[in-house]
Nucleic acid binder design. Structure first.
Lengths: 246, 246
DNA sequence: CGAGGGTTTGAAGTGCATCAAATAGTGTGG
DNA sequence: CCACACTATTTGATGCACTTCAAACCCTCG
């Protein structure tokens, strides 16, 4: 499934349907929509580079975007992998207009980019929008705290288990069928491990909790068993959806 | 040096001198100062518990506060360790008034606590304050991203080296004398390793970069050598102070 | 001086990484 | 539609890093 959905429209997008802009003023939406640019990114295409001057920020329409940091010798640390509906490059506002991370398309992606300058004005003049941004930033922060916890307390198979559980609806169903949203290699780096380790850890997870693996489709027969296996080494218990107050 | 500085004053604190409140309105400051409570916390004293209802947030006057998460079996993951000037418990605003982490005094501490309810109103009504909070949240987020990078790319001795470098003034001086701000055991957990590992890794660091260790006083003869040793495995290069735009 | 916590050291085990190579899968051009 | 090229994934063998368990040491403080 490597296809990019075709978009007929080339006109300015309707920003009011995008969660990120929901609390922003109509004036701002109009202004920014006029300057929106659609960008189709092939797999591996680099969108922004850590340290570059941030003139624009990006909304993901489709595909997956990897945020990462890279050392001089080329090794990289994946910070996060975002999908449709998310925004990135916006926090550069608070870093002297310098992107704090690099971003590239992990899967073919469709992006909308907007001028960053207007964002600052809107944040400063529209309290509702500022609060919305604070709220999403807080949610993100919580997520990162949890990520750090996982790296500290969970071993490789448990991290995979946890990752799989977070891909389910968490609605109490006994079993679930999961589709890995991107490469196993990428999942591995997302979880801070090598591809080889991922492969072996998944095999171990299969042996220990009885899930079935066929390519990137994974069937969890016994969600309870998997959650017990993974969530034992975590401070939050299974239905661990991030519930965030208004 | 286990002494708590004596504070004669028992009157309401002057909030305008606290960075966190700088952008807040005088009315808010007065209101909140009236309800301020000073709290002296012994080492190990638990201040807030993850999951508890958040009625107040805390400003650190002195000492060190450990933020952490704990699993049911008692193992804990340290999220961060804060010192004087920092605020914690404030982000509960954005998590349905539930503390997203636990906090305890890592060293004897003096805290000021304030009612959380007023904070929400101020954030919503004072754009300047909201932006200031956004800014500090963004800085924090960046820090956590870097933390994750360190855990991913640096080994134990390198993480210690990086930690030490961040305790220096980073002003280009050739050598530096560092005082560990708290227990080695705590430094270890802050860096995501066991005390034994910390001890051995510090010994290795000493052997490899020629620093001198006497208890919790560490003399770095050759800062350049240490930074080369540690920062090779990191995306940011040595004088890596978080410089954040206005 | 003795108690208790912090720190170091030793010996052994575990988990993940690394290097190397085989296998499976996918997209390409013929 | 098939063979080839290329990438993703798996598997094997081995090594290193960190942990674990245990015990000694050290330092501070009553």
């Amino acid at each position: 499934m490597r296809m990019i959905e075709a978009h007929g429209e080339r006109t300015s997008p309707k920003l009011e349907n995008i969660a990120f802009f929901r609390a922003s003023s109509p004036a701002f939406q109009q202004q920014i929509a006029r300057e929106a640019v659609e960008l189709k990114a092939e797999r591996r295409k680099v969108i922004i580079l850590s340290g570059d001057t941030a003139s624009r920020f990006y909304f993901i329409r489709a595909g997956w975007i990897k945020l990462y940091q890279e050392t001089m010798d080329g090794t990289e640390a994946v910070i996060d992998i975002l999908n449709a509906g998310h925004v990135f490059g916006d926090t550069a506002l608070f870093h002297g207009d310098i992107y704090p991370y690099s971003a590239e398309a992990a899967e073919p992606a469709v992006l909308l980019s907007f001028p960053a300058a207007a964002l600052k004005a809107e944040v400063e003049s529209n309290p509702k929008f500022a609060v919305a941004m604070l709220s999403s930033m807080a949610r993100y922060r919580r997520q990162q705290d949890q990520e750090l916890e996982h790296r500290t307390l969970q071993n490789a198979p448990q991290r995979i288990g946890c990752f799989l559980l977070r891909l389910t609806r968490q609605d109490g169903a006994e079993s679930a069928v999961i589709h890995l949203p991107y490469d196993k290699t990428l999942v591995a780096s997302r979880l801070g491990m090598k591809p080889e380790t991922f492969s072996r850890a998944l095999a171990k997870l299969r042996a220990d909790t009885g899930l079935e693996v066929q390519g990137s489709t994974i069937t969890v027969r016994d969600v309870a068993s998997l959650s017990h296996y993974a969530c034992t080494a975590c401070s939050s218990q299974y239905p661990c959806r991030d519930v965030i107050g208004s």
